[in-house]
Design a protein around this nucleic acid. Structure first.
Length: 154
DNA sequence: GCCAACGTTGGC
DNA sequence: GCCAACGTTGGC
């Protein structure tokens, strides 16, 4: 099992939306590094920190699980959509995404400021490459953040 | 809303 | 293949 952090702006798609949906496809990622993680490295059962970016405060809001293998991102084929990619075709998809299942919300969301306070987390990708929306987290970082979040609520 | 950081595009 | 111009992310 590997550990990941996935960012979403809560105005666009929040942990509450994931709770409501149960499972969602992590669509619309248009960054090759993030895509490669989903396409090559994420496996069903991997655990995910759901991070609210561009929020007040930005924070790790909850937990999710990779629910299946990567599939072509359907939004790349939707001509009218914002995420249409003319260079992609169903025969040669360019963008992939994984389904993500809701696990829970933290009793205490862990703010970016709090994450920065802990020496155990200074090497987190989140704190060193602010632009990557799908990123690996080490097992120890993951466990440490679970403790900071204390408990999950429904 | 600003803007630093950094990824992407495209001319050469 | 370099790199300037441009676009996007995301904290503040």
């Amino acid at each position: 099992v590997r550990y990941w952090l996935m960012k979403s702006e809560p105005d666009v798609y929040s942990i509450a939306d994931l709770k409501k949906d149960g499972t969602t496809l992590w669509e619309c990622v248009r960054n090759y590094q993030a895509r490669n993680f989903m396409m090559n490295d994420m496996k069903p059962g991997d655990r995910v920190l759901f991070y609210h970016s561009n929020a007040s405060p930005s924070a790790v809001a909850g937990l999710a699980t990779v629910a299946g293998p990567a599939v072509p991102d359907p939004t790349q084929f939707q001509k009218a959509g914002e995420y249409f990619d003319p260079k992609a075709s169903p025969a040669k998809p360019r963008w992939f995404c994984v389904p993500v299942r809701y696990e829970g919300r933290f009793q205490d969301p862990i703010s970016l400021e709090t994450l920065k306070d802990h020496p155990a987390l200074t090497k987190m990708v989140l704190l060193n490459n602010s632009r990557l929306s799908v990123q690996p987290v080490t097992a120890s970082e993951f466990q440490f953040i679970l403790k900071l979040g204390k408990a999950l609520k429904e």
